[in-house]
Amino acid sequence: FIYLLGLGKFFMIVAALDTGSAFEGMGASREALYSMLVEPAFFILFASLAMLSGTTSFETFFYSLTFNSSLAIFIGVLATYLIFHIALLENSRMPYDDPKTHLELTMIHEVMVLDYCGFDLALIQWAGHLKFIIYSLLVSNLFIASSFPEWLQWLIFVLTTLLFAIAVGFVESFRARHKLRSNNKAIVILIPISILIFFGSMLIMNKLF
């Protein structure tokens, strides 16, 4: 699953480089760097959740998770926070990037699509929206138990997606963009959060002490 997301990022970068534009190449290198920096947090998070669930199969991965203690709920909240920030980063949203900016030197994602228009640009925008839905699905699946009826599972998914969209709008309305040189630090901070989730998972499974 993670490598499938990475494959989409790879083709996005290749498409930007294919234009031969120096600006788009600059944006592609920044996007690749940020994805590389956030990758450890992503892997540690899912490794921790896989350890908690006892399986690596996505078919039963989330259904096996149970948040029946205060520590488990805390881990769920941290995981939600982490996935949300990864979604903002991977979709080049505030505070990591400003999709409304018109200054090419500070753009990240938007500079990669400057030379695209029409159907090609529509596909790129559609892919970005799909990624947001995928990340909101990950969050909703954290809190959907296998014992829930199907209508409740759909309701949780719809509500989570709406809350996800509202949260993105809230962040973009009230958060200022990081300085470009500060983005690396802001992204690397996500790694200690994922490590905290890992140790919390170890505590739940009584494998730490």
Rank of each mutant, 00 (worst) to 15 (best):
S53D: 02
S53I: 00
S53N: 06
G54C: 04
G54M: 02
G54T: 01
G54P: 04
G54N: 02
T55A: 05
T55M: 01
T55P: 07
T55H: 07
T55K: 08
T56G: 15
T56L: 13
T56F: 12
T56M: 12
T56S: 15
S57Q: 15
S57M: 06
S57C: 09
S57D: 14
S57P: 13
F58Q: 09
F58I: 02
F58E: 07
F58S: 08
E59G: 12
E59V: 10
E59Q: 15
T60D: 15
F61Q: 06
F61Y: 11
F61K: 05
F61M: 07
F61L: 08
F61T: 05
F61S: 04
F61R: 09
F62K: 04
F62G: 02
F62D: 04
F62S: 06
F62P: 04
S64M: 06
S64E: 11
S64H: 14
S64N: 15
S64I: 00
S64P: 08
L65K: 09
L65W: 02
L65Q: 03
L65Y: 03
L65T: 03
T66K: 15
T66Q: 15
T66H: 15
T66S: 14
F67V: 00
F67R: 03
F67E: 06
S69C: 02
S69W: 01
S69D: 07
S69Y: 02
S69R: 03
S70K: 14
S70D: 12
S70H: 10
S70M: 08
S70N: 13
S70G: 09
L71C: 03
A72R: 15
A72T: 03
I73Q: 07
F74E: 01
F74W: 02
F74Y: 08
F74H: 07
F74Q: 07
F74G: 15
I75R: 05
I75L: 11
I75T: 00
G76D: 10
G76V: 00
G76R: 06
G76T: 01
G76A: 06
V77K: 08
L78I: 00
L78M: 13
L78P: 07
L78K: 11
A79V: 01
A79D: 07
A79F: 04
T80W: 03
T80D: 06
T80G: 11
T80H: 08
T80M: 05
Y81W: 13
Y81R: 05
Y81Q: 12
Y81P: 07
Y81C: 08
Y81A: 08
L82K: 13
L82E: 10
L82T: 10
I83A: 09
I83M: 09
I83C: 10
F84D: 10
F84S: 10
